[in-house]
Write a protein that binds this DNA or RNA. Structure first.
Lengths: 267, 267
DNA sequence: AAAGATTTTGAAAGATTTTGCAAGAATTTG
DNA sequence: CAAATTCTTGCAAAATCTTTCAAAATCTTT
């Protein structure tokens, strides 16, 4: 095998494994440890990889995407269903705000076909559309909160202050009859700006968030125009919200086999 | 079979395989290894293919996210070297602006160790640091230009107007003694905002940009504090810039030794 | 169409690079 | 501090590259 091909394969392997020992790589590639050592020296020189004692590590892990995109599989099916349902509330060609957070991300995944204009403070959502010319993508800017890829702070707030959208798809840490709450004050600031910028606010929360309260207060329930949640939502909450004039959509959960596939090892 | 047909077939084959050994190609085409070698030399000269030890590799892998990451493989080594050199002009912990574009991207790749605060309008740069808590990342926001992942427009300009940085690492489409130029008016607006926001401006351009002019005028050469380019830069340009008080850094190209060729081997 | 000139092809010899191994230096761990 | 592991360096063998040359193929000229 050729040196460059081998090096490429090492990179590919590391993108899956994050760490790898020398012997692991040598066995995977069918060459000696010395050769792997030399290849790693080259790759480190190019800056993609960091050698560690006994192995190597990926330096700019492209695969270690944002936390929720990979790791936060909690209520994944619910969020997927909610995303699909919520996207139906938007019309083709509209200007839409998409909040940061995993639930709103799943909404975004279903918006592409509408050829919308999308305003977001979420880096994962941005990456979703960055290569899609059919979607006009506008970012709020701001300080990026490391692992979540959320843009926060005054830059984001001021940018949203000058924008206007027809619908905002928002997430939250919790919702009760007393109000909508979230986990961080900086998030709240940006979300308030989103509320002001949008004609219509759609809150997307899975059923575990209903009846729960998070640390920081965002707004009264009346500020929300529609709530999209999943079928497992407690009935009294759903009816209570409807009594307050809030439209509630229950996303159907098709309870088929969970189809959780095991992580495939390298070939 | 005709030579050109053979070469075309080699390209086709490589587009499927990405890598191929000499013997693999020789067998596939039904010719000797020597002939394949010669064909690869021609194809490499045309710039579509890269010869490796034992075979050849496709130069434009289609797996990359943003366009510059694949299109600009031509001056890739230069840009890599420039990036490494330019990063030395920053001090640990400083606030740095990183422009969009491939050259500035390569600078960014070398900035992580400085634990800097990074301001950028480039989505690829943002992704580079989004998962790195050691780097404080600030995005300008703005309309995202589809394939390049650049944030543009008034949102970006206004955000930069309220920021301040110690060093700005900028790219450009061309630079002459008359001024720095770039390819698009919207880019220029944002770059002007960067110039205003930074104490010190470092222009990172490979040697093909020196002496070339692009469509839109950005600024006079005097606005630039330092130029980082590669060793292949024309001497008279380098000296002309230095005469104007601009610091010029030449990044060393550690290309493989040109393998002292006897006369007559030119292609 | 035939003879000569030019180009292309395939193969071999020498130079260069890469690979795997081993010994000594450096680092980590208990 | 000592043992174990890992890293670096130097070297010979193997593989690959470049150069060179003669035969085959193609083109040009008459």
């Amino acid at each position: 095998m050729q040196p460059e091909e081998r090096q490429k394969r090492i990179e590919t392997y590391l993108q899956q494994a994050e760490f790898a020992s020398l012997e692991e790589l040598a066995a995977h590639l069918g060459v000696s440890v010395s050769t792997v050592r030399r290849d790693l020296a080259v790759l480190e020189g190019k800056g993609n990889i960091r050698r560690t004692y006994g192995g190597a590590r990926l330096l700019n892990p492209q695969s270690e995407e944002f936390i929720f995109a990979r790791r936060d599989t909690r209520q994944l099916e619910e969020k997927e269903a909610i995303g699909r349902r919520a996207a139906m509330l938007a019309q083709p060609g509209q200007t839409l705000i998409v909040d940061a957070g995993s639930t709103a991300y799943h909404v975004a995944r279903h918006l592409g076909a509408l050829r919308p204009q999308i305003i977001t403070n979420s880096l994962p959502v941005a990456n979703l559309f960055a290569s899609t010319p059919a979607v006009e993508l506008i970012l709020t800017g701001g300080v990026v909160y490391p692992r979540l890829g959320v843009m926060l702070g005054p830059v984001a707030v001021e940018a949203l202050g000058k924008m206007h959208a027809e619908v905002a798809f928002m997430g939250a840490g919790g919702m009760t009859f007393e109000g909508v709450t979230n986990s961080h004050a900086l998030l709240i600031e940006v979300q308030r700006a989103m509320l002001r910028a949008a004609d219509r606010v759609v809150l997307c929360v899975d059923h575990t968030k209903l009846g729960r309260r998070s640390v920081a207060f965002l707004c009264e329930p009346e500020k929300i125009d529609a709530v999209v949640t999943d079928e497992a939502a407690p009935l009294e909450v759903v009816e209570g919200l409807r009594d307050r004039g809030i439209e509630v959509c229950l996303a159907p959960l098709n309870l088929r086999a969970p189809a959780r596939r095991a992580a495939g090892a390298g070939s």
